[in-house]
Simulated scan of single mutants.
Amino acid sequence: MNHVQDELDWLAANHDRFCEIRHTFHRHPEIAFEENWTSARLAEHLAALGCGISRKIGGTGFIATLPGGEGPAIGLRTDMDALPQIEETGLPFASENPGRMHACGHDGHMTLLIATASLLARGTPLPGPVHFICQPAEEVGRGALAMLDDGLFEVCRPARIFGYHNWPELPVGTVSARPGAIMAAYFNVGFTIDGKGGHAALPELSDDMYGAMAALITRMNERTRAELTGAPTAFAFTQNIGGLAPNIIPNHLEVSASFRFVDPAHGQQIETIATETAAEISARFGVTAKPVLRRIFDLADNDPAATALVADVARAAERGLTWQDAPRPSMISEDFAAFIAAVPGCYFWIGAGLEAGALHNSRFNFNDRLLLNAPQLLADVLRKASVEVAGH
C-alpha cells in the first residue's frame, strides 16, 4: 500500500475525532486579537504532536515547529479568528459566544492543520523543520502584519510558505490556484463632507449635504467603471454616517466604499479619481469634501514555482481531489499576502461546495468532508517542498 492510501485510510479512521475537534473550535469563536482560548487550544493539540511552541507573536498568534532535519524550513499557515456575526445554523455545536461565529471556516482550517501535522508526526521526519504559523486577525487584515512586526521571520524564516482556504465557489475536492495575482488588494475609499447644516424645515438656509453625497457616489461609480479598465476591479459603496435626527440637516457626513483590484496602477488611479471627484463636488455644492483612503490588504501574489509544486502534488495521486487552474484572481482579499510578499509561497483554494453555504453567511458551516483528504494533500505539499528546498 502506498503512503497516500495509508494516510487516507488513517484520516477516515480518525474522521470522527477530527470532526469533534472542529466542532469544539466552532462552539468557541473569537474575533480578531481576542483568540486567547482558540490559540491555547490549538497550541495544545500541536504540542501533543511533538511541536515546539513559540507563543505571543502578533498578540494571540504563535508558531508550532515540528522538528526535522538540518535543511531549510517550510511554513504552513492557518488563520484562527471568527467574525462578529450572529450564527443562525441551528447546529448542535453552534456558537456559544453571542455575536461571534466561525462563518468563514477558520475552525476547519485549524483542524486541517492539526490533521496535517498529525500525518507528518507519524511519518519519517522531513529534511527540514515545518513551522505551523497560527495567525490571528485575518478578517480585519492586520494579523499577518502584526506577526511580521513582532519578528515572525526572525524567529522562523521558512524557505517556502503555503496557505489555503476552503472555497464554496468550487466543487467539493477541487483544488485551485494560479501563479501571480490570486487575491485582490483592498483599499477603503472614504470621504468626509462638511458644510452648513440647519433645520429641516428651512433647507434653503443650509447646504445640500445629502445632494452632495448622492452626487459624489454617482460620480465615483461613473468614473471607476469608465476609467479602471483592463485588469478586474470591484468598487462598491458600503457605509455611510450621517444625520442624527429627522428634523436636522447635518453639517458632517461620511461615506466609504470598498475597492478591490489586482493591477497596482489601479491603486494609484483610484487616489486621483477620489481627489478630483472630491474637488468637483466641493465646487459644485459649496461644501468641503475630502477623500480618506486606507490600505486594508495588499495583493496576494503567488510564486510560480510554489504554485506549480501544489499543482503537481494535487495531480500526482488519487485522493479524491482534482486540480483546476484558476482562470482569474478572486476579488476577495487575504492578508496572507504579507507573508508571500516576504517569502516565496502559494495560497490556494480547496473546494467546499455550496452545500456549506457562502462564506460570511450566518448559516455557513465548514464542510467536514474536507477532513478526509485535504490534510493528505497538505502533508504531501510540505514533503515535496521540503525535499526541493533541501536540494535532495
Rank of each mutant, 00 (worst) to 15 (best):
D6W: 11
N14L: 07
F18K: 02
I53F: 10
R55D: 00
R55S: 03
G59C: 06
F62T: 04
L66K: 05
P72F: 07
R77F: 09
G99Y: 06
M110A: 04
T111K: 04
A115G: 01
A115S: 02
A121N: 00
G123H: 03
H131I: 01
I133G: 04
Q135V: 03
M147Q: 00
G151C: 05
R157G: 07
G163M: 04
H165V: 14
P168W: 07
P171A: 00
T174A: 09
A181C: 00
L205N: 13
L205V: 09
S206R: 03
A212T: 12
M213I: 00
A215H: 06
M220S: 04
L228K: 06
A231M: 08
A231H: 04
P246V: 12
N247L: 09
E254L: 12
S256T: 14
P264I: 11
G267T: 10
Q268V: 15
T272K: 08
E276P: 06
I281M: 09
A283N: 10
A283M: 10
G286A: 15
T288V: 15
T288D: 15
L293Y: 11
R295L: 14
F297I: 14
A300V: 13
L309C: 14
A311V: 14
R315M: 09
G320C: 06
L321V: 10
Q324F: 09
Q324D: 11
P329M: 13
I340Q: 12
G351A: 06
A356N: 07
H360A: 12
N361A: 12
N361S: 13
D368R: 08
R369V: 10
N373Q: 02
D380V: 00
V381N: 00
